[in-house]
Write a protein that binds this DNA or RNA. Structure first.
Lengths: 190, 190
DNA sequence: CTGAATTTTCAGAAATTTCTGAAATTCTTG
DNA sequence: CAAGAATTTCAGAAATTTCTGAAAATTCAG
């Protein structure tokens, strides 16, 4: 691996982080390399840059394609495949979130739902179901929010973020209105 | 492993998911088991429930403690340690987020900052730095937002989520005001 | 202090994941 | 369709991670 030291540091760190997130080290390194490369790279170039076997590169690229994380490029009169990453980091994040949701969150929700349908046969099971119900609600809330927010264009998303917890002030207002409304409705009934 | 079938399904799924997120299967299973148990469990009980060695339980519990994910409990006149999880799922999520940030995000930010300080020695390095800069900005934005939001109590956080992208309407307004301001300022200059 | 109960440690075994080289396949072009 | 360039596949090797049993350490009651 003889990359510019600055690039090498990035690639190695990324490989390290990848493996802490359940992504294989090599896949992480390849992604990092593609991410910082000024031009799309072909498999051979990745092999040379990272000092890994050609077949490993092939399998790792397949993996990255399955995750929708890389773009395929071609040069006229050259039948090799060249790989690159999207330019927009926000887009990359969105793709990552989308894929993880599809692979991990959705199946978890359906397992939870299935379990929650069953009839508890003991007090322990009843309690377990109750706990799983709480988890189910949490995940549903998060994914609903995510489905909402993922539609936003980058510019607007950035704005939403920069607003941060300042939204709380708005919430305070809403909060008061809602509770006022509740009080009124309650007193009307009486 | 002879748990109620409903609990077993949950525990196994959780172990599976854990390993996809870089958490060892056993650690995930133990956490799931503690999460749904009506009472705190001692190491011996976990050993029996999950059919793993006592030493494995000991090490996995140590791991969970390092992640601040479990609570230690004692019974009077019994010197065994009993383990449980917090009741509030939101609190669990917060802890998880906090720990991952501390272990993975913060180090990444500091690696990026360090690399960005260096002087690029080539065009390729200049480009790589530019890309890393974009990633750095993204992560900074996300963590700033996170630092903001993590303070919120559960009730308010849930409200923020339920609001979701409806906040966009507010943003639209802000957006218009901002761009109006820009137009005015520009025309004043001319 | 002794000894029983409990927990921790850790070297090596077992299991799992990752990686490689060689062969097979695909694709293009003359 | 033959040849050559590029890619993919996959069985087994290598590396890494996880797990265990045995021994050591800790804790506490008597």
């Amino acid at each position: 691996m003889d990359l510019p030291p600055l690039v090498q540091a990035f690639v190695l760190h990324f490989g390290e982080m990848g493996s802490r997130w359940g992504i294989n080290r090599t896949v992480g390194q390849i992604y990092a390399l593609l991410y910082v490369s000024p031009e799309p790279l072909c498999a051979e170039e990745i092999t040379d840059a990272l000092d890994i076997s050609r077949s490993n590169v092939s399998m790792s690229l397949k993996e990255l394609q399955a995750w929708n994380l890389v773009l395929l490029r071609h040069r006229p009169g050259d039948r090799r495949d060249f790989y690159t990453t999207p330019d927009d980091v926000w887009q990359i994040l969105r793709t990552l979130a989308e894929e993880r949701k599809k692979r991990e969150v959705d199946p978890t929700l359906s397992v939870l739902r299935e379990i929650l349908m069953q009839k508890p046969a003991s007090e322990a099971e009843r309690h377990a179901q109750q706990r799983m119900g709480e988890m189910h609600v949490l995940i549903e809330q998060l994914t609903t929010w995510y489905d909402d927010v993922k539609q936003l264009e980058t510019r607007r998303l950035a704005m939403l973020l920069s607003l941060g917890a300042k939204v709380t002030k708005l919430l305070d207002t809403k909060d008061k209105i809602v509770s006022l409304g509740r009080v009124r409705r309650t007193s009307e009934k009486e």
